[in-house]
């Protein structure tokens, strides 16, 4: 009885059945290559994802938390693998769920960007009146920047 246990221990300690970088690299490569070979840009992929979700959620309620989309490749053939966990069938006459998360995030990003221009300009304009004085002071009196510590 004890002998197999020790052997097992050695296995786990040294050569290990645990996750190895070899498995990591294989998994990463398979995903990367699937994308490379398909030459599909992320935007198109995302659009496809959205549309598939829309269609599916017309009929069933989807668990958005554990939803998975991935491209996999084997024998130089690439497949789209969608793992769409279903909570339950959709009761008739209810509006389908929308993949809110993704859309909202996307909208947020766009908002940020359009605001960004204005914000940036405001930021650069605002501090200018106050900055020069302190800057001049530091530079002239204490070129090494020890000013702060000294006073």
């Amino acid at each position: 009885m004890t002998i197999p246990v020790i052997s097992d221990l050695i296995d786990r300690l040294f050569s290990g059945r645990t996750q190895h970088s070899r498995d990591d690299v294989k998994r990463r490569l398979q995903i990367v290559l699937a994308h490379d070979r398909l030459d599909l840009d992320p935007q198109t992929l995302e659009r496809m994802r959205q549309e598939i979700i829309q269609v599916v959620s017309r009929y069933v309620e989807i668990d958005f938390e554990t939803l998975e989309f991935s491209l996999e490749t084997d024998q130089r053939v690439t497949a789209l693998i969608a793992n769409v966990p279903i909570r339950r069938m959709r009761p008739p006459n209810t509006a389908p769920d929308r993949p809110i998360d993704a859309e909202l995030e996307a909208a947020d990003i766009e908002l940020d960007l359009s605001d960004g221009d204005i914000l940036l300009r405001d930021e650069t304009e605002e501090p200018t009146p106050t900055l020069p004085r302190s800057k001049e002071f530091v530079v002239i009196d204490d070129p090494d920047g020890r000013h702060d510590k000294a006073f």
Binding site: G16, R22, K26, Q75
Partner: peptide, 18 residues
């Protein structure tokens, strides 16, 4: 390194590139 699971094996690489 392959043995130790820290490098892709011949089969891994060939399988991926086919």
């Amino acid at each position: 390194m392959v043995e130790a699971g820290q490098m892709m094996s011949v089969k891994d690489v060939q399988g991926i590139l086919s």
